[in-house]
Design a protein around this nucleic acid. Structure first.
Lengths: 312, 312
DNA sequence: CTCAAATCTTTGTCCTGGACAAATACGCCT
DNA sequence: AGGCGTATTTGTCCAGGACAAAGATTTGAG
């Protein structure tokens, strides 16, 4: 067996370590090298790729740009300077409004202070409220952390740590909101993602927005096969199916899945899609929410449409 | 581009879907086919593999056996009957003592009832206590869920859902225990895993055990590079580094990592390894805990060794 | 008889280079 | 401007070979 990995040492990384670090498949790394001449790794004595640290950082920049909708052919091989310039124009521009919190988060991640981070996030959610935390501050902080990672200022496991703490705080805030005064009433909303989509963050943020509107929420977790989503919708007599997408799924596949789902559930069950999937357009049979803030009015509209909004 | 996936339909799965389902790398699936003649997928019009559902179930059985230490060469290609027979002899044998809870869990997973599952787990942790929940019931339930998955009675996303709910409940119980009366005192324990190890469950169960002993805990999350573990140990002046392993990491690599870590931290910092890594043996420089129940006496021994056990 | 060192076998990961369909961009027409 | 057909880009898959790490087995020493 040959378990290539320890090469994190001495600033040279094996292809599997780069795959873990950058989230780029080995096949993709190899085909980019063939096509664009980058990355350009060294080789060990048995011709296995060894990626220098600086190329890994460049790959991180590329990864972010591709996620934001840029095409590899246009950017792979360009110097870091160009890439950072392009990156300036992507992402949430509201970073300055949460600049001080973001700085604190990065500092806590730098000192491996998970507890401090959780306390900070808890303080933020208490001060700003669940809505702002989920819809504005959260995405802003995630953006800041992702940007720091792509600049090489953070390691991937620190981003994971942030996600974990952020998720924990958000989940418990949702839980608290569900238990609080406000009586729960329809729509009954079912949350999940398609099998190709492992990201839970967007889903959870959506869940927060629906919870604030007093909806009844049921989370299936991520990566549920489409037939099972339909089955669960029936079992729980859901009114709305909320599906979250990132750029992991290409838009046509998302649309195909949504259409398939549409055919499996009754007409009166609505399908709402959201997330950061470049090029996902609304079509007959489902709605697309590009902003979390659009959820609240959407729920209001649903309730007017549905009549009085029958309790439970 | 060619994003192979939707083939979950019609009971035929693409190689990438099987990889996700079974946790077996595409390369591994192909080389098993070449070497052992199994799996034996159909091909689509462009010679791409299409795995029938029954072969996928067999692959799940094989996956579990390999995880438990069996060698592929001895079991790949054997009929399901043999595999199920072998599986009877692996895993926690205490399943009957928690049979009724396990049955409830499987039922709740079957009806996609995440909330009910969380309530059940919460009830269990309150009744049985954190220690029994983390050290006995948890592993037993995880075992039961994994076994049901390998028998084809559960889909992989349902196992994920269980893990998520179990983790949430455990985390909040740990949190509650930390806040409760019992004053926290040394040893100060730092938790993490090596970069190749993404499983958080074992780590969290260990954290529960240490918390019950009144230790000061710091979790770095999973997949921390070794130099960063050492740096965090220094920054937090940890007394013990607790590392968790599953069969994702082969034993020699775990030992190499532990030895590397040993060289990076002062002599007086102890390194404790645990988890289900077949063939991980204690060596000079670090201890190996095969059972969670061994942690409590271990902490007691540490405190006697360290003198009175200085507070904070 | 126990344990460690040396030898043999098994096994997962990496390699090259080719292929193609899905995804996207572009140009055209209404 | 917006829908449709064509051209280009791009990620994933394939075959088949190679090898070192992991594990099993044998050998040798105390």
């Amino acid at each position: 067996m040959t378990n290539k990995d320890p090469h994190n040492s001495s600033r040279l990384m094996s292809i599997s370590a780069v795959e873990r670090d950058c989230g780029l498949a080995k096949d993709t790394l190899r085909v980019w090298e063939r096509r664009y001449g980058f990355p350009n790794p060294l080789r060990d004595h048995h011709d296995e790729r060894l990626y220098p640290a600086d190329q890994v950082v460049t790959l991180r920049l590329i990864r972010r740009l591709v996620e934001a909708g840029h095409r590899p052919g246009k950017i792979v091989g360009r110097p870091d300077k160009d890439l950072t310039e392009l990156l300036r124009h992507v992402g949430v521009p509201a970073v300055q409004t949460i600049g001080s919190e973001a700085k604190q988060v990065l500092k806590l991640l730098g000192t491996y202070d998970a507890v401090g981070l959780r306390e900070l996030l808890n303080a933020i959610v208490l001060r700003a409220g669940l809505g702002a935390y989920a819809a504005e501050i959260g995405p802003g902080l995630a953006e800041a952390v992702g940007a720091a990672w792509s600049r090489g200022e953070l390691e991937i496991h620190q981003e994971h740590l942030f996600t974990e703490q952020f998720t924990t705080v958000l989940r418990s805030a949702i839980h608290a909101a569900q238990g609080a005064g406000l009586p729960r009433r329809r729509p009954r909303v079912l949350f999940s993602t398609f099998p190709q989509e492992p990201h839970a963050l967007g889903l959870l943020m959506a869940e927060a927005m629906f919870t604030l509107e007093g909806c009844l929420g049921i989370s299936l977790g991520v990566q549920t096969p489409i037939p099972e989503i339909a089955a669960a919708a029936k079992a729980h007599s859901a009114d709305i199916l909320a599906l979250s997408f990132s750029s992991m799924i290409p838009a046509p596949q998302a649309i195909a899945g949504l259409t398939e789902l549409r055919a499996l559930v009754p007409e009166n069950v609505e399908i709402w899609a959201g997330g950061t999937c470049p090029g996902l357009r609304p079509k007959a049979g489902f709605r697309v929410f590009r902003e979390l803030s659009a959820i609240a009015p959407g729920v209001g509209a649903w309730r007017s449409r549905a009549g009085a909004g029958t309790p439970t």
